[in-house]
């Protein structure tokens, strides 16, 4: 009935750093790419207006050969602010991203990621700087995100990480695709539907 029971407890992959605070959802996916009735093919739209300009491809990390196999996105503060469009994490996921590590995240973006089984992992400001530098120096190095112990291993670094505890539980127990879990409370839902004063 759902994509459920996929428990996400750890992830290994190469990293792609996208620097900058307050990277909003319009930058992650410009609105014109949302004129679609499915999410398919949105990977190419990820960061489109900063990946392409009138001269063609820019040197945005998503365009660089060295990051084409990356699956962990490294970002700074307040990533994903702005719109509620799930098209943003969908575009990143369809480009190849399976986890996001950063200093802080906008709330709706972060919830949308959880719904898609994408861990949103927070680390300290100094740590993200070190991780980004390392990913730039050694793009083919793998990061291991251990969601159970909340540690990141990346080359010489072992870093303590944080996650919203409920999102973490949902990923670890395979209940991140929430519909099935919510439907389990069918009777309680019906009772509330009847009893609300509106």
């Amino acid at each position: 009935m759902s994509a459920n029971d996929i428990k996400i407890t750890n992830l290994t992959g190469q990293c792609v750093p996208v620097r900058g605070n307050d990277i909003d959802t319009d930058r992650i996916i410009p609105a014109r790419f949302m004129k679609v009735v499915s999410f398919e093919g949105l990977g190419e739209a990820a960061f489109y207006d900063i990946r392409y300009n009138s001269n063609g491809k820019t040197d945005h990390p998503f365009n660089l050969d060295v990051y084409q196999d990356a699956s962990i996105l490294l970002v700074n503060k307040n990533f994903g602010c702005g719109s509620s469009r799930e098209h943003a994490p969908q575009a990143l996921m369809r480009w190849g991203i399976k986890a996001v590590v950063g200093e802080s995240f906008a709330e709706i973006f972060s919830g949308n990621c959880t719904s898609l089984g994408i861990p949103v992992v927070e680390v300290d400001s100094a740590d993200i700087g070190r991780l980004m530098n390392a990913a730039e120096e050694t793009p083919n190095m793998n990061m291991i995100i251990d969601i159970e112990s909340m540690t990141l291993n990346f080359g010489d670094f072992e870093i303590e990480a944080r996650m919203n505890s409920a999102a973490r539980n949902a990923l670890m127990t395979g209940s991140w695709d929430s519909t099935g879990v919510l439907l389990d409370s069918g009777e309680e839902i019906d009772a509330m539907h009847e009893s609300l004063p509106y």
């Binding site: 469009r85 919830g111 898609l116 519909t179 919510l182 409370s185």
Partner: peptide, 22 residues
């Protein structure tokens, strides 16, 4: 509150969402 498309799915199917209380 604003929600993403997976939560719209949940509301259509269950009239509820799974959400952190702020």
């Amino acid at each position: 509150l604003g929600v993403g498309t997976s939560q719209i799915r949940d509301i259509l199917a269950t009239q509820t969402i799974a959400v952190s209380k702020p």
